[in-house]
Nucleic acid binder design. Structure first.
Lengths: 232, 232
DNA sequence: TCAAAAGTGTTGTCCGTACACCCATGA
DNA sequence: TCATGGGTGTACGGACAACACTTTTGA
């Protein structure tokens, strides 16, 4: 290898698609931009990646600066590089996605950079116009979580730690956008043996309170080396 | 939007992981590099993406220049951006993969750029040392095609147009790295009803000649909107 | 006592798996 | 006639899908 080769750096951005679940619907976390291009538009949390940070680190930093969220594990989704996607030139973006427990965060979102005015959850079914190609990125993310959720229990990441079977079913119904049979759903979920039944019940409802469950990650890891199928 | 923003361009590379199947084993297409860094090493076909071409177009061009292969449909795999992956600085690479009919090409590979000395198929199980993080990229690609092949009939892309059921089974065995039951495999494949039985038979074998089949893409598209499962 | 959601079983069908022998062909 | 791979069927168990009523609770 030679040492007198020119030094180069990749210029590119990273974007975050963060999903949450509340009130029976899927939501995505958007920021209101305070900088050109697309000043005052809504868009995904995203920014330029520094030369000395990995892409995985960069999305974490960007998400923290844009929303105040910390320690979120994101997975890479896809890299978008359409010639027209960015008005300042062909800048590619590496998109990441994550699913998280919305109720633990609520609207306690605090941007710490001047690039962002505020961060807010938006229902997937009623998104505003978005900056860049962010609409497209979000659509690709949904396809991804649909595929993903069929093979691994990531849906639990969207629920509170303690949840009822009905909440779990509603979540799957929201992701698949179709109704599921209550008895079959419960039978199947319980058969996997990855839920721990708690002694507690739901509180504050004006009807029969449902049992609460927890996702039992230890059991899950023990039992399933390979794959599950949650899609039917 | 403002027009006096600085103009920027992403600098990055794209790499191609091309799989083929012959003699009962999976192969990957490598090039011998004729340029620094990693001059004289084997690596994946890959190079810098131009500012005015999409990433999808770039991998096609690069593959053509490096190997002479034309019209290959590749899908994006993942974007690699480790700080140490490239000796000239942190240069990210967008990796693509494809599977193709090796016997239609054979060793008729003709690089048309001085950056490459030659292109050659290498068995996946006996790879030489590779430039950059290309070993890692290939490993990720295999995981990807294993997942992919369970849900869609892309395995046919690796076989000749006309093939025997045994060849098809050997291909799945190579991808999954495990033996399958002949009767069950045939039953399952034929039940999907995506194969067209031909009137022809295998030639040039010193034992009973097997029937030849074709993948029937029309039937496939008609019957299956969603998914198949070829993995068991 | 009413409204609302929780909770619960059976049956038929399909799919996957395990398993062993005869057949056709060319050398 | 032999060696080689081609080609075939059955029986069991597990998973999925369809389907409706009773129970519990708070208001």
């Amino acid at each position: 290898m030679q040492s007198n080769l020119p030094h180069l750096q990749s210029i590119f951005t990273a974007d975050c698609v963060i999903f949450g679940f509340s009130e029976g619907e899927l939501k995505v976390l958007l920021i209101e931009r305070n900088e050109y291009p697309f000043k005052e538009w809504w868009g995904l949390p995203g920014f330029f990646v520094e030369h000395n940070e990995t892409i995985d680190d960069a999305v974490k930093r960007i998400l923290l600066e844009h929303t105040g969220l910390k320690g979120i594990y994101m997975e890479q989704l896809y890299t978008f590089g359409d010639l027209q996607r960015h008005p300042q030139g062909r800048i590619i973006t590496v998109a990441y996605y994550a699913m998280l427990r919305l109720e633990a965060i609520g609207n306690n979102l605090k941007p710490s950079t001047d690039y962002v005015r505020k961060a807010q959850w938006h229902p997937l079914n009623h998104l505003p116009d978005l900056a860049f190609d962010h609409k497209n990125i979000i659509e690709k993310s949904i396809e991804k979580i649909r595929r993903k959720v069929s093979h691994s229990p990531i849906a639990f990441e969207l629920l509170p730690e303690k949840f009822t079977l009905t909440q779990l079913q509603q979540l799957y119904e929201a992701i698949w956008d179709k109704k599921l049979d209550k008895r079959n759903f419960r039978k199947k979920m319980l058969k996997y043996n990855i839920l721990k039944e708690l002694d507690e019940k739901q509180k504050g409802v004006s009807y029969r309170a449902a049992k609460l469950y927890k996702f039992d990650k230890r059991k899950y890891n023990k039992i399933f080396k390979n794959e599950l199928n949650f899609s039917k």
